[in-house]
Amino acid sequence: MLVPIAPSDRQGRLEATRLLKMASSTHAYVRGNTVKFYEWLAASPSAALLPQGPSVWICGDCHLGNLGPIANADGQVAVQIRDLDQCVIGNPAHDLIRLGLSLATAARGSDLPGVTTARMIEEMVDGYERALSDEADAAPEPEVVRAVRRRALGRGWKELAAERLDDVAPTIPLGKKFWALTTRERDALGRLFENEAVRDQILALAHRDPQDKVRLLDAAYWMKGCSSLGTARYAAIVAVGGSKRVPDSIALVDLKEAVPAAAPAARDAAMPADHAARVVAGARALAPHLGERMLATRLLGKPMVLRELLPQDLKLEVDQFTKREATRAARYLAYVVGAAHARQMDKGERAAWLKILRNHRGAGIEAPSWLWKSVVELIASHEAGYLEHCRRYALAQAG
């Protein structure tokens, strides 16, 4: 029998869960420790060698799990960046390094040889540069990505509810992932879904009738993610149109607290001061399918990002690469990131950034030394950090 989690016990349980997740593998440690990445960036001598790209919105946490199929308001699906918590206006080279580190640790987790990792970094650079070139076609979609995108296209409410809620009924089952709300939280969520801007955002999806009513059916505190564990997060089910008992449709809404980004912003960056507004602005620049579905709001004094979850939104799970899939995925995913950066640049900026990148490369398609050295240093740093994390975690459990 599951013991209900009291609101006063949330932070301790969230932190324990985060530490456990990060101890599961080096790749999980990398995904859950954005701060360590930027600590390295600030301290490493190699960081001074990084090329300075044009100041554009960057993901700031560009690892494999933050890329995947995303549906827009009309249900069209594309592979884009799917998590923008860390987004800032900054140096696009930071996203390349973060993606390279994630690919390299995923390859190590799949027991692939170092030669394959080297090829992945080379293919990644080629895919990214292809996105900046006006003449280049899109990088070919690897089977590991195509399979997830195909699965996304055939999904509906039943698949979404079964995956997210473990139940297809329009209720949120309290238990391991979903915890009871305080009276204050429930009242605040009730008021939020009566807000005109929130109602309009939900009705903008799937060609819903703009005159429909939006009614809150159920809500809970949501224990989700890894690096974000410890920030406020809620799941809400709302009825759209019809009556409360027989609505025209059901929507599952994610409300996530927006916190300061660890990623360094460009010195002259003009970004919203409100962190939720920053996340939404970055999403609209980097991942239009997702950005158009997001709204910056506030709940109990905290900046929150609200978005309806769609059945087509899926995460890429590529922890078990083959050699061929690894290099193809590296090329394609870097192309996706490059396209997100490139759409913010004019033709001259793209050409100038492409020239800088190519000037830092050797003969053939050899990866630039700044990227390779950065990834190698980061793997060593994160491997040591991961082992130390596991040691501390084991000692804490023994105590």
Rank of each mutant, 00 (worst) to 15 (best):
R307N: 03
G242V: 05
N195C: 09
S227N: 01
Q320F: 05
E349G: 04
R186K: 06
I89T: 01
E159Q: 07
D9I: 03
W353V: 07
R233G: 01
F321E: 06
A235C: 12
V198R: 02
A330C: 02
L101K: 01
T297C: 10
A106Q: 01
D61A: 02
A118I: 09
I5D: 01
A263I: 04
A281N: 10
C62S: 15
D319I: 00
I237V: 15
E383R: 04
G32R: 02
V3Q: 14
L99Y: 00
R392D: 11
A235E: 02
S381P: 00
A152Q: 06
A197W: 02
G385W: 08
R186P: 00
I250A: 13
G282Q: 11
M294A: 00
K21T: 03
N66I: 02
I172S: 02
R361E: 12
I250S: 03
W372E: 01
R361C: 08
A277I: 14
L99V: 01
G175P: 08
D248E: 00
A131I: 06
G32L: 01
V115I: 07
G225L: 05
E292D: 07
L229D: 00
V3I: 15
P311G: 04
G127P: 07
L290M: 14
P311L: 03
C226M: 08
F321A: 07
R278L: 06
V125I: 13
D134P: 13
R146L: 12
M271N: 13
A106W: 10
M271A: 14
S381V: 13
A48I: 08
R151K: 05
V375S: 06
S46V: 14
M345A: 11
G75E: 12
W179T: 11
G156I: 02
T26H: 05
L189P: 02
G32W: 03
S24Q: 10
M271K: 12
A152V: 08
N33I: 09
D346K: 05
T231V: 06
I81Y: 04
S228G: 02
Y386I: 10
A147C: 04
L67Q: 08
L103H: 02
A23S: 15
A235V: 14
T322Y: 12
T182N: 02
